[in-house]
Structure formats: structure tokens, C-alpha cells
Simulated scan of single mutants.
Amino acid sequence: MSALMEIHLVDELKATLLAEQTRLKKLLANTQRHLHRRDPVSADFAEQATETENDEVVAALDQGAQIELSQINKALQRIESGDYGSCVVCGGSINTERLKAIPHTPFCIQCASAK
């Protein structure tokens, strides 16, 4: 953890990360239920097309939630290890305002911009 990081700020950001982790786990449970449901295929071709489109949207939501959940879990690990607030690329401090905006970010603005 950067010397500039205040303990209460880290606690606040950890609470934010934990709340988002819970929300994403619920979302993933719902998307998985939807994707693995056993509903019969509609006889109506237009309805089949709509169902397929809906499934594609749900699958994209599921994939995005999985990626974000992984990033949140890694951020929580960095908090536990004391590395939170330090860029994983250059080792520099991540700006407090950036962490407030994106609590799971592992990159300072310079390294994020270079990607």
C-alpha cells in the first residue's frame, strides 16, 4: 500500500469492492440460470430469433461480469497483501481519485494510457 493511502480510504474502497463483488455474484448466478435453463424451443421462428438474441445479450453480460469479478477479487487480494494503491506495472502510486472512480484498477493513469 502506498504511504499516501489513508487507512479509512482503503477501508471505504474495500467496502465498495465487497459490495460490488456480492452484486456481481448474484448477477452471475442469474445469468447462469438463464443460460442453462431447459425451456422448450418456441415453435415461432420470430420468437426463436428473439430468444437467441436475448441469450447472446445474457452471455455477454455474463462474460463481462466474470471479468469484472476477477478484477475485484485481485484488488481485494492486493488490499490483503498491502500492495493496493500501487501500479502493478511501474510500482508507482495510483492516484486516489482514480481509485475512487475505479476501485479495482491495478494501473496508474500513465500505465493504463500506455495500453
Rank of each mutant, 00 (worst) to 15 (best):
E80S: 08
H36F: 13
E51A: 03
E53M: 08
Q77M: 14
I72S: 03
S70Y: 07
I72T: 05
S81R: 14
L35P: 04
G64S: 10
Q48C: 05
R33S: 15
C90Y: 04
D39S: 10
A75E: 01
R33F: 15
S86E: 11
D39T: 10
L61T: 06
D55P: 01
A59Y: 06
A75I: 03
S42R: 00
H36W: 13
S70E: 11
T31P: 09
V57P: 01
E53Y: 09
K74Y: 12
A75Y: 01
V88H: 04
V89Y: 02
V58H: 01
D39H: 08
V41W: 06
Q63F: 10
S42D: 03
A43V: 05
K26C: 12
Q77R: 14
A65T: 03
L76K: 03
R33W: 15
F45A: 05
D44N: 02
N30A: 15
Q71W: 06
T31E: 12
V57S: 05
L35Q: 12
H36I: 11
K26A: 15
A29N: 15
I79Y: 00
E80Q: 10
H36E: 14
A60Y: 04
S81C: 11
N30K: 15
Q71S: 10
L69I: 10
L69Y: 07
A60N: 08
L76I: 15
N54F: 06
L28E: 12
E56Q: 12
E53D: 08
A29R: 14
E56G: 08
L69Q: 08
E47F: 00
Q63D: 11
C90P: 01
E53L: 10
E51D: 04
R38I: 12
T50E: 06
E53H: 10
S70G: 13
I67P: 05
C87T: 04
V57E: 07
S81A: 14
A65L: 06
S70D: 13
A46T: 09
N73T: 14
L69E: 06
Q63L: 14
